[in-house]
Measured scan of single mutants.
Amino acid sequence: MTFKAIINGKTLKGETTTEAVDAATAEKVFKQYFNDNGLDGEWTYDDATKTFTVTE
């Protein structure tokens, strides 16, 4: 399945996608990506659209 992340950061904005077997796996991938890029913020997840949003 394809999962999307919308990034609303102070220094980084945009979208990225990942292929994962479930939402928990996708969340781990996205959180690692955000940690690697120095992002920290509020997380939400919309199961209907398979979209994570992080707002810094």
Rank of each mutant, 00 (worst) to 15 (best):
M1W: 14
M1R: 08
M1N: 09
T2P: 04
T2C: 14
T2D: 04
F3A: 02
F3W: 04
F3G: 02
F3E: 02
F3D: 02
F3S: 01
K4Q: 05
K4D: 03
K4Y: 13
K4R: 13
A5P: 02
A5K: 01
A5V: 14
A5W: 10
I6L: 07
I6F: 06
I6T: 04
I6M: 06
I6G: 01
I6Y: 07
I6C: 08
I7W: 15
I7K: 00
I7Q: 02
I7M: 10
I7P: 00
N8W: 13
N8P: 03
N8D: 08
N8C: 14
N8H: 11
G9P: 03
G9E: 03
G9W: 13
K10E: 08
K10G: 09
K10T: 11
K10W: 12
K10I: 13
K10D: 06
T11E: 09
T11C: 15
T11V: 11
L12Q: 10
L12V: 11
L12A: 06
L12D: 06
K13Q: 11
K13M: 11
K13A: 08
K13N: 09
K13L: 09
K13Y: 13
K13G: 07
G14Q: 10
G14C: 15
G14Y: 15
G14F: 15
G14E: 08
E15C: 15
E15F: 14
E15Y: 14
E15I: 13
E15A: 09
T16L: 15
T16A: 14
T16N: 04
T16D: 02
T17Q: 09
T17N: 05
T17G: 03
T17V: 09
T18Y: 08
T18H: 04
E19H: 13
E19N: 12
E19P: 03
E19S: 10
E19W: 15
E19I: 15
A20H: 02
A20C: 07
V21G: 05
V21Q: 11
V21E: 09
V21S: 11
D22C: 03
D22E: 03
D22R: 01
D22K: 01
A23W: 11
A23E: 05
A23Y: 09
A23S: 08
A24H: 08
A24W: 10
A24V: 10
A24R: 08
A24P: 06
T25Q: 12
T25N: 06
T25C: 07
T25F: 05
T25W: 06
A26D: 02
A26Q: 01
A26T: 01
A26M: 02
A26C: 02
E27P: 00
E27A: 10
E27Y: 15
E27R: 09
E27N: 03
E27D: 00
K28G: 07
K28W: 09
K28N: 06
K28F: 08
K28D: 04
V29A: 09
V29I: 14
V29F: 15
V29R: 07
F30M: 03
F30A: 00
F30W: 02
F30I: 02
F30V: 01
K31H: 05
K31P: 00
K31D: 00
K31T: 04
K31N: 03
Q32F: 05
Q32Y: 05
Y33T: 04
F34V: 13
F34D: 00
F34Q: 02
N35L: 14
N35E: 13
N35V: 13
D36C: 12
N37C: 15
N37R: 15
G38V: 06
G38S: 06
G38K: 07
G38H: 09
L39M: 11
L39R: 04
D40C: 13
E42H: 10
E42L: 12
E42G: 06
E42M: 10
W43D: 00
W43H: 01
W43S: 01
W43G: 01
T44W: 07
T44C: 09
T44I: 08
T44P: 01
T44M: 07
Y45V: 00
Y45F: 05
D46N: 09
D46S: 04
D47W: 07
D47Y: 06
A48Q: 10
A48K: 09
A48W: 05
A48Y: 08
A48M: 11
T49W: 04
T49L: 05
T49S: 09
T49G: 03
T49K: 06
K50V: 02
K50N: 07
K50A: 05
K50F: 09
K50L: 10
T51H: 01
T51I: 04
T51M: 03
T51F: 01
T51C: 02
T51W: 02
F52W: 06
F52K: 00
F52A: 00
F52T: 01
T53Y: 13
T53P: 00
V54N: 01
T55G: 04
T55R: 05
T55N: 08
E56R: 06
E56G: 06
E56K: 04
E56A: 10
